[in-house]
Design a protein around this nucleic acid. Structure first.
Lengths: 342, 342
DNA sequence: CTGTTAGCGCTTTCAA
DNA sequence: TTGAAAGCGCTAACAG
């Protein structure tokens, strides 16, 4: 009659029985942890195989005080750059044998709640790609030995590591390219309430122009988009068209804004590179399309993801080490809106 | 000396002590499950609050044999439609109090492995947006009472529920719009190795044309893209330009393909709607942009997500009920490439 | 209504 | 090297 009962699921106990050893031995065999005779290991592994045994991660995590989960905080993944970043993170997380717990936030309040939930699952680490977690919560994570890494966020929390694209270097590349291509008046396109990364790109662009001998007071005009994304860029173009000087070179904080701006100008009969030049940031797939062919700085999401995971693991093994920021190289992709000068 | 030890984390035991009750009462108070005096509940809740108590989901899940996790299987989330679908799913999953475990797969083998891992976390449900899980594994899920729902997949597994956009209705809308707009020759653009949804759209389009009195043998030409996505569409245009008849109306399996096709034609001096008309599927944000303004069928991802979660919950409470397929309404968005006829 | 008791399935000392 | 035993933190019967 026992055999007719549908077995809930096979446990380490079952494997032990079949292999003729104790559950402890099974545990050792499967986690390569603790001494065990190779003969016993063999038997256990075979038994496990035959029974189709699968570790219960909940029980395992409960015991080890740590699950094989990594929490990822994102927002607005409809945005092409964000989704490609998430893509990179997922791949890397899986490659390293973890599982991603992903949560989309709409507000800072969401972020706090989410972080809470992550800790309740005893995650092995948290990756923040959006928002800034409240100091108090981060401290809780630190206390619980949960490593936190921020991506493209301002490095300002102790015990948190950061991975950022090298915005400053990118801005310099953009400035130099525009200058070399003959631009002498410049524009910096960004939206209100820009992210830290955006502001950093703008500031570095200005400094690079100064280095090139440009009087930025006179010849660098800020183009302010009333909102973020494509629509923001579109609207920014509306306001600026009348005063577009010749030899204008615009640098833009991100891809969506740049595409909107391009379309806004096109709508008003101004094309790049004939009437102005434009360099964006992100190199999303869309920027390569025939209708845009946007020159842009490429963010290496695969490398960003790799570095992020490395940070997580390193801090896990040394929770007290000082905060570290890794700058990931960006490269300039030459396309139509600011063509390469040979 | 006990107070100087840094407490690992506060447990139900601690709360019980502080509230002067047993751990069982704490459990009841927090899960609204089992009878308890309101006075006791008060005390527990307050104590929990004061201690900053957080349930350990691993322990809870282990006990209930079910975590509050929902596994989501995706692929190529760089594709705008897929990322917006994921977006919708994440929102809905969180709204219903679950956490999303997301895994990106690159092959059917990945899918199997992933599904395994999901079960090891005792997920409350699995949502498949890509690939087809092997029968055997699905059965394992069914046996373990883990509901599985497929999105835009061919409904063919027993005990699995499906949520699909109403492809057939969409194809009819497209055919009628093109016909009304004056098209008398038609094209059906899809890529090789199309998904089931894509093939379904094509077949329904053909049938709708027949209903409109079109001789589809003669006046419906298949445009085959050598690969999927934007590049596939671009290449499809290259092959077809010479033979574009006037009054051609093209229907396309998805947005990316359509945008590529549009650009491929533009590159060769053919514009919509002047030289041909085009209707796509998906209504990704990009299709609305000035450079494209693609007429397209809108997939309601929010509704799809809602239905998917509903399926999951309903099946959880009745695992034996027959497989059910929910068709979600699509609507035609009129834009430039096939303008509305008044 | 409340406390006691037995697990959930796994890991990890600690003796043997 | 191995097994026994004591948890990890929580839930759910079952008496009281």
């Amino acid at each position: 009659m026992t055999s007719s009962l549908r077995k809930q699921s096979v446990t380490a106990q079952d494997v032990a029985r079949r292999a003729g050893v104790s559950r402890a031995v099974v545990s050792r065999a499967l986690s390569n942890n603790g001494s065990i005779s190779s003969e016993a290991r063999e038997r256990v592994l075979r038994a496990a195989e035959e029974l189709g045994y699968q570790v219960n991660f909940l029980a395992q995590g409960l015991n080890r005080r740590r699950s094989h989960l990594i929490g990822v905080i994102v927002s607005r993944i409809g945005d092409p750059f964000r989704s490609s970043l998430l893509d990179g993170l997922l791949s890397e997380i899986q490659r390293r044998g973890f599982q991603a717990l992903v949560a989309e936030i709409r507000s800072e309040a969401d972020l706090a709640e989410t972080l809470r939930r992550f800790t309740q699952f005893r995650v092995s680490g948290v990756i923040v790609t959006s928002g800034k977690p409240p100091e108090a919560l981060v401290n809780e994570c630190v206390q619980q030995q949960i490593p936190v890494v921020g991506i493209n966020r301002q490095p300002d929390s102790p015990y948190v590591d950061y991975v950022c694209s090298d915005n400053a270097a990118g801005a310099v590349l953009a400035a130099e390219q525009l200058y070399r291509a003959g631009c002498r008046r410049f524009g910096w396109l960004n939206n209100q309430d820009s992210t830290w990364a955006g502001r950093m790109r703008g500031e570095a662009f200005r400094l690079a122009l100064v280095d090139l001998g440009i009087d930025t007071e006179r010849d660098l005009l800020p183009l302010l988009a009333p909102e973020e994304g494509y629509d923001g860029g579109l609207q920014a173009a509306a306001g600026q068209v009348p005063q577009v000087p010749s030899s204008l070179g615009v640098f833009c904080a991100n891809a969506q804004l740049a595409l909107g701006f391009l379309d806004g100008m096109k709508q008003r009969g101004r094309q790049a590179p004939e009437d102005f030049q434009l360099i964006g940031f992100d190199n999303t797939p869309q920027t390569a399309q025939y209708s845009y062919q946007l020159s842009t700085l490429h963010q290496d999401v695969a490398e960003i993801a790799r570095q992020a995971l490395t940070c997580l693991l390193e801090r896990a093994s040394d929770p007290q080490r000082p905060s570290r920021t890794t700058w990931v190289k960006v490269v300039l992709i030459h396309r139509r809106t600011s063509p390469s000068i040979l």
